[in-house]
Structure formats: C-alpha cells, structure tokens
C-alpha cells in the first residue's frame, strides 16, 4: 500500500481502472462508489472528537463510561460509529501526567473518520506507520511534543476491527471554561496523540 493517496498516483489509476471494470460489468452502478464514500464521510469531522473530549473533561462520569464502553458513551452526545456498513468498535484511551497514548495503523491507515474527519497524509505515510511503534518518543519529539522521560508511552496499533481515539490532557488555565469553548481547543493531532492541546 502506498503512503500517499494523490489523484495522480499509480494506485489511483489502478483504482479508477477497477472502478470502470466494475461499472462495465454491471456490478456497481455508475457513481455508486462515490456516493457511498460521500455517505461514509458525511458529518465526519474532528469537531466530533473535540466535543467528546470536552464532555469527558467536564464530566468524570462520562469520562469513565467513555473509557469503558465508548460506543455507548458517544451516543450520549448524539454521535455513533454506525455510519458505515456495520457499527465499528471504538476504543478510547485517555492521556494523563503519567501515561501518553498515541494511535497508528501499521498495516494500512485505519482511523475513526466519523470522529476525526478524513485522516491526514502523515498518518498514512510509511514513515509514521513504521517508526512510531519503534520510537514513539523520537517521533513525537519531531511533532514538537517533548514528553518527560518519566511519562510512560503506549502505542495502539489499529491492526484489526477497532478504531481508536485519544482524550488529550486538559490544558492548564482552562478551569471554568464552558464545555463548548473547551471543544474549541482540541485538535485532530491531540485526538491521535501526536500533540498536546
């Protein structure tokens, strides 16, 4: 699998060719694949992951439910992982002062699109996928995130059917900030674990 998904790449040409064959043989209707992809991406945005995070910061009960059964918990804020062909299991992990979590898919580029929007190019790059499992501290430093040597790091490899999201640490100085405003400080990198917020 190639690292990038540019429209001009060889893999894109191959995909277009397969798509044309499927249409020519009547296996899919013209434009059906694009429509399905649009449906799948509809509503997918890092604003959703940010909303979940802000709720977890202000509501410890929600945070506990989120870390225990994320699929059930995100329904409380009107979100779900059931936008595709079947509901995908969601695993949410939370960063603390002692432990930092970071997500990767070493085999391809699995990612919770519904909660984070389309994945960034670096997440799909071979460099990130192959290096972050071996040297997360070094890779995070390249992202500008220097963690104390005492912080334990766990890398989560999305190698099967679950999708993962990180709840970043709540920034200092945000005590008393309303939930909607807190959601505004959460970034996509924070939800993958490659940045603090």
């Amino acid at each position: 699998m190639s690292g990038d998904h540019h429209a001009s790449s060889a893999i894109s040409e191959r995909v277009r060719h397969v798509e044309a064959l499927l249409e020519a043989r009547g296996l899919v209707d013209e434009g059906e694949i694009d429509r399905r992809i649009d449906e799948f991406l509809a509503g997918g945005s890092p604003a959703n992951g940010a909303r979940i995070t802000a709720r977890a910061w202000v509501d410890p009960g929600f945070r506990d439910r989120l870390l225990t059964d994320a699929n059930a918990a995100i329904r409380e804020v009107g979100l779900s992982m059931a936008g595709g062909l079947q509901e995908q299991r969601l695993k949410v992990v939370a960063n603390t002062s002692e432990e930092h979590n970071v997500v990767v898919c070493t085999l391809c580029s699995c990612y919770p699109i519904a909660l984070l929007g389309p994945s960034p190019a670096w997440y799909k790059s071979e460099a990130y996928r192959s290096r972050v499992v071996r040297d997360p501290r070094g890779v995070l430093a390249e992202f500008g995130l220097d963690l104390p040597a005492t912080t334990r790091i766990t890398v989560w490899d999305a190698s099967a059917e679950s999708r993962y999201m990180v709840v970043p640490r709540r920034p200092e100085g945000t005590e008393g900030m309303p939930e909607e405003e807190l959601a505004g400080v959460v970034t996509r990198k924070g939800l993958i674990g490659t940045a603090a917020v």
């Binding site: 997360p136 790091i153 766990t154 890398v155 999305a158 099967a160 679950s162």
Partner: peptide, 25 residues
C-alpha cells in the same frame, strides 16, 4: 475472538521503554 494484547517494546524490538498494544485474533 479479538483481543487487545500489550507488549513491552523491548520484547518486540530488543529495546525501547514504551508499550505497544496490538489488536489480535
């Protein structure tokens, strides 16, 4: 059944102080 399985980096790569959690059948 699929499991989250946690490995010490040193057991996977021979060095490293982190952990890697892999999802395995």
């Amino acid at each position: 059944t699929v499991y989250h399985v946690r490995f010490a980096a040193a057991d996977l790569f021979g060095d490293g102080d982190h952990a890697v959690t892999v999802e395995l059948w």
